[in-house]
Design a protein around this nucleic acid. Sequence first.
DNA 1: GTTCGGCCTGAAACCGCTATCATGGCCCTT
DNA 2: AAGGGCCATGATAGCGGTTTCAGGCCGAAC
Lengths: 365, 365
Amino acid sequence: MARAVKIKKPTIATVAEQAGVAVSTVSRFLNGHYVSATVRERLSAVIADLGYSRSWTARNLSLGLRGSVGVLVDSSDDPWFVQLLLGIEEELVTRDCSLMLSSLELLGRYDATRVLDWVQGHRVDGIIVAKSQRRDRPILRAALDARLPLVAVVPDETATDIPVLQCNNIEAGTIVADHLAGLGHTRIAFAGGPPHSIDSKHRLRGLREGLAAHGIRLDSADVYSCGGWELEAGATFAKELLAQPLTVTAVVLANDALALGFLRVAHERGVMVPREISVVGFDGLPFGALTWPSLTTVAQPMREMGRVACRRLFEGMADPGRIERIQFRMHLIARESSGPAPVIGGARRHLRAVSTETDRAPDEA
Amino acid sequence: MARAVKIKKPTIATVAEQAGVAVSTVSRFLNGHYVSATVRERLSAVIADLGYSRSWTARNLSLGLRGSVGVLVDSSDDPWFVQLLLGIEEELVTRDCSLMLSSLELLGRYDATRVLDWVQGHRVDGIIVAKSQRRDRPILRAALDARLPLVAVVPDETATDIPVLQCNNIEAGTIVADHLAGLGHTRIAFAGGPPHSIDSKHRLRGLREGLAAHGIRLDSADVYSCGGWELEAGATFAKELLAQPLTVTAVVLANDALALGFLRVAHERGVMVPREISVVGFDGLPFGALTWPSLTTVAQPMREMGRVACRRLFEGMADPGRIERIQFRMHLIARESSGPAPVIGGARRHLRAVSTETDRAPDEA
DNA sequence: GTTCGGCCTGAAACCGCTATCATGGCCCTT
DNA sequence: AAGGGCCATGATAGCGGTTTCAGGCCGAAC
């Protein structure tokens, strides 16, 4: 205390010396193993006095750990993964582990070598790949070959050899079906994303089956493809659909971006949503709440998924080889873009929306 | 090659042995120091053969580094910082350094001890605090006391003892002034955020000065305060302003969230934007492009700021004690919410917007 | 009064890599 | 022909922890 100020950071040896015990004793104390009460008190005092904090680098080296998990995100999905990160972080904090972030974009998306180098050499105990797609498969394979625990979140659904977290898109479709049927819609259109997207297919399938349960038939003529996932694709589709007289009272788009594109064009064309047509998307993007009208959507529980991804990763470290598929339920966020089906020819009063404004997702608390 | 498969990961010693050289030679090779051509070839071969990759943990321990920088983000600003992260990452990749992410929220926002623990004990060589506010000051102080290089991005502007990156809000104000003056507006309102926000004040000041340069006076009666930064505050303000007959032809709100709230209410009330009134925000939030009409705004070059923050952090590691304030210019993104000033009483034709759609910010490429 | 067994603690090896210092060739100089 | 430098490499001491193993001390059991 009264000593000359040391410039060097105190190490475990400093503490041991000051307390007059061996380093191993200090180490035991630090790790909560048994030490006598006297020593314990003395050590706490010395440590507090010195402001000592142990080097995780050294600890990890000794233990053969890396002390962090890597999260690879596809940077093109901007705001999508923020909640996911928070969920992961939440879980990590309880494990004295940190979150190493990297984007596939910057590591060189298609170069498995670079990712692997990051992964093996750098210092992660496992990786979580956010929104992997089929084209990322080589990277995943390589990581697996390197015996690196790995979890993919919202992956290309055809992957069978890695643990994946995904949403139940079929159920999501039926949720929309129930919602729209409840509002009295009977003629509904669906617009998918890229031609062979499995997400689209499942959402459509769920929608179709759900509607069927209500005795409503989704006509094949009312199933379209936007050709992509982006807002522009949705806008293009809207222009086509709205160029002709409306034959449907609601349109379901395969994701929120498409739906927002649709809403936008609807506004340009003066088509009233939801009075003339209801619009529903999928994903639960936060800014869907900010448009006018705000977008009814089926949200993915991102934060929860982050938590589970992390937990699953640690399980995978303990018990490698277990490959499973964890499904999450999506939940409806009814906002303003969906409303009662227009009554054909009926004199309808000004009816804005029945939106229940369940705006706040359970995990956004 | 033909040896029995070792379960253990190869280390530098394995490589040395296989190649018949000393570990120090391998180390030199790995670090790009000089070794003879023969040895070099032999080593590359052995390394490739063994699939060796070096342990960054060990390297860092030896070098006394941590090999990563920490980024503390305030989780409440969802999508705001994604571009920032990408900018940081971009810079980090060239330095074989990784990005450790943590949110102030989870580390316990107001508990400097916990952040410090993360910071000292865990393993970062420095930290970047994104969007720090005055209330985070104790954390910054503590980090500084621990001699930990630190950079604050878009900070509370009154901080003087740490390197900060910030936007030139005054200039941003004049940019808006030029834009609106160019569109013929002469009666303009400004709505600030929280009462004492310095950002608000600067933006207002720039606006006022800029307008003055065009011979336009910003009347004090036309300066309002929304009381907060959130969308709802903007909506509330809009309700008040739009309850009375319009006396201004344009309204400038202190950030995008407020402006989006305003737009929303304007739509509800059937007020045409920009035909009846132009609306401008600040920040450049990505989803400002998705609303209808899309929002004219002055954007912060987030990705660039991320890059610079990172570079500055490394400089600070080499040369501690240098405290400076780096300013960034914001740039106008003219979209649909701003248009020519309505001609009072004139018979105007349907004029949608003069938006030049400079939608894509330079750094979004 | 020994011997055995538990409980704490100390000594030292090790985790994988870097850096410093020492060494031994080889070429070049005078 | 001998000495001096330089170059490439080898040996080794850390970096800051953890863990194994051995040993000292004390009470209980024979």
